[in-house]
């Protein structure tokens, strides 16, 4: 049951991912990304991370993507009439890089992972309590650093996007 669900949502996530790459209208692409994030949330749950599944839905889909959608609608962005295209050389090199990356990870890193990581799965389901204990003991310093970063980002975003920017 869980495996069938996993296959279904993995396939759905891949379809939405292809849509993100294929659609030119920013609004439609962003909505497809919301679909990817929803599917990944289900996959997180099935992989034994229920807390991250909810964080993914609430923070990523609920806050980050809504912010992007808000900006797209605020500025009234459409796919530009003269579709902005990359230079042919740039395009070729970019595709080459993508293909390179795909092959490298599929062949090189893939065999390494298969040798070193136990692919049995079904790891212990993690409670929120264990996650919280770890976050506030071993990872306390990075946690505080991230809170400082978020504060700086909030102030910076506010300063940058004010209307009377002189």
């Amino acid at each position: 049951m869980a495996t069938a669900l996993f296959f279904a949502f993995a396939a759905l996530a891949l379809v939405f991912g292809i849509l993100v790459a294929a659609l030119r209208h920013p609004l439609y692409a962003a909505l497809s990304l919301v679909g990817v994030i929803g599917c990944l949330s289900v996959l997180f749950y099935l992989l034994g991370a229920p807390f991250l599944a909810m964080v993914q839905l609430i923070v990523y889909a609920g806050a980050t993507l809504v912010l992007i959608l808000f900006v797209i609608m605020l500025l009234g962005l459409r796919s530009e009439p003269r579709a902005p295209e990359a230079h042919p050389v740039q395009k070729g090199l970019g595709l080459l890089l993508c293909l390179n990356m795909l092959l490298f990870f599929l062949l090189g890193a893939g065999t390494l992972v298969r040798k070193t990581v136990p692919m049995t799965g079904g790891g212990a389901r993690s409670g929120v309590e264990d996650l919280g204990r770890l976050l506030f003991s071993r990872y306390l310093l990075p946690f505080e650093a991230v809170s400082l970063l978020l504060l700086a980002a909030a102030v910076g975003a506010f300063l940058l996007a004010r209307r009377e920017w002189k």
Binding site: L52, T120, S126, L134, V146, A161
Partner: peptide
Amino acid sequence: SSANGALDGQIAVIFTIAIASAEVGVGLA
């Protein structure tokens, strides 16, 4: 994280999500 049975990977995901939202906020501004 699920393969190893260790929670450190999930902690890394929490940090990634936090940093991604900071990046999106400043970038969109």
